[in-house]
Design a protein around this nucleic acid. Structure first.
Lengths: 108, 108
DNA sequence: TGGTATAGTTACTTAAAAGATACTAATGAA
DNA sequence: TTCATTAGTATCTTTTAAGTAACTATACCA
């Protein structure tokens, strides 16, 4: 077994943490490709500024792909990159743990 | 496949995020049981206040166990609970992803 | 009598993340 | 000519997380 190191875990955490990033990722996992406005609608409480910032972060890490269509009004869509898909097992592990944890907290 | 939900992922994230929590967890995974002062030494830049706060959080979620020995000077040690050990696969998934990500970023 | 050790607490400050609100460019449609 | 649409920016404010520094209790040891 490879030893788990703080540093490598940090790297993965950076991509998932923040109030919104993992929600964005999950939408893109489940919904294929989504426009800016669709993400905004799916996360009604996020502000445009924050949504933009988070998307830019994810794009910079090459986890999502941003496609601009030269139309008016503008159209931009976001999808998980092939690379981003490698995050799915990580989110799955967290999801499974979360389900068990919720159950545990419910029955105590 | 179970659908990954924001809410369950959130639960797991809460336990791992913050500047120090996952480092504390990793120390306890690798080092069995550690005293407050040992954790402090292992994380030289954390303040006592924050270390206490993070440990209390983890204890409240039943992820770690706090044992007080009625001695003077006081002795308190912390260890992963059986339940806490169920987090190991989650950290492992993140660790593996982190290693691959580091490699990718290095070779681009 | 004063110093040392451990595991904290308390009160205050700073930095980082997030939020609110108003604004823009370009085009077509009424 | 004005309005609607989309994907943003720019500025300012608030909230949350983290950090700093000083203080405490208790017993032992010199």
């Amino acid at each position: 077994m490879t030893k788990i190191t703080t540093c490598e875990v940090d790297t993965a955490l950076d991509l998932i943490t923040g109030k919104w990033k993992h929600s964005i990722l999950l939408l893109l996992i489940n919904g294929e490709s989504l426009r800016f406005s669709e993400l905004k609608r799916a996360l009604p409480k996020i502000s445009q500024k924050i949504l933009t910032a988070q998307l830019r972060d994810l794009e910079e890490q090459e986890v999502i792909v941003r496609t601009v269509y030269p139309e008016v009004p503008p159209r931009v869509d976001y999808q998980l990159s092939e690379y981003g898909k490698t995050l799915i097992p990580v989110l799955e592990a967290m999801n499974e743990w979360g389900i068990r944890h919720a159950e545990k907290m419910r029955t105590r």
